Simulated assay, not measured.
Amino acid sequence: MENQTISIPVDVATAQAYTKSSEEEQKKIQLLLGLRIRELLDKPSVSLNQLMDEIGAKTEARGLTPEILEYLLNDE
């Protein structure tokens, strides 16, 4: 499959973490994001708010609290 590059704005911490990761980790992230984007585009009937609510509910169910998220985002 031929690849094409796109630009997606992210917060500074995410960009730094991605940049610092190994080439192998970056490839894994790219693959996962590509799959997730296709999955999201296959469900055009879901609004952004619904999607964000769904993601929030899943992360809370898995134990991610706002405090843990803040710690992870600020961890260097």
Rank of each mutant, 00 (worst) to 15 (best):
E25W: 06
M1R: 09
I8F: 03
A57D: 13
T14P: 00
Y18E: 01
G63A: 07
R36S: 07
A17Y: 01
E70A: 10
A13R: 08
N74M: 06
N3Y: 13
P9I: 05
L35C: 09
A15R: 05
S22M: 05
Y71T: 03
E23W: 04
P44R: 10
G34D: 12
S45E: 15
K28V: 10
P44E: 05
L40P: 03
D11Y: 08
R62C: 04
K58T: 06
P9T: 04
K20M: 02
I68V: 12
K43P: 01
I6M: 07
T5L: 08
E70L: 09
Q50Y: 14
E54W: 09
P44N: 09
G63R: 03
L31E: 12
N49F: 08
Q4D: 01
L31T: 08
L51T: 12
Q30V: 01
A15S: 08
T19W: 09
T59E: 12
K27V: 00
Q16P: 00
K27F: 05
L72A: 13
K20S: 01
L69P: 00
K20A: 05
D75K: 15
P44Q: 09
V12R: 13
S22D: 04
L33P: 01
L69V: 03
N74C: 02
P66K: 04
T14V: 03
G56E: 11
I6P: 00
L69Q: 14
E23K: 12
S45C: 10
I37H: 13
L64C: 02
V12G: 05
V12A: 14
E25G: 00
Q50F: 08
K20P: 01
A61W: 05
I37D: 09
T59L: 15
Q26L: 02
T5W: 11
D11I: 02
P66Y: 05
R36C: 06
K27L: 09
L73P: 01
V12P: 00
A17P: 00
L72W: 11
Q50W: 11
P9V: 02
L73E: 10
N74V: 00
L64N: 07
D53R: 13
Q16A: 11
E67P: 02
E70C: 02
E67Q: 15
S22L: 04
T59A: 11
L32D: 07
V46I: 15
R36V: 03
T59Q: 15
L72C: 11
T59G: 04
D75E: 15
V12N: 09
L32N: 09
S7F: 13
I29T: 03
K43M: 13
K27D: 06
L48K: 11
E54I: 09
I29V: 05
A57L: 11
K27G: 02
K28C: 02
E24W: 07
T14W: 04
S22A: 09
I6W: 08
M1E: 04
L51I: 06
K28G: 04
A61M: 11
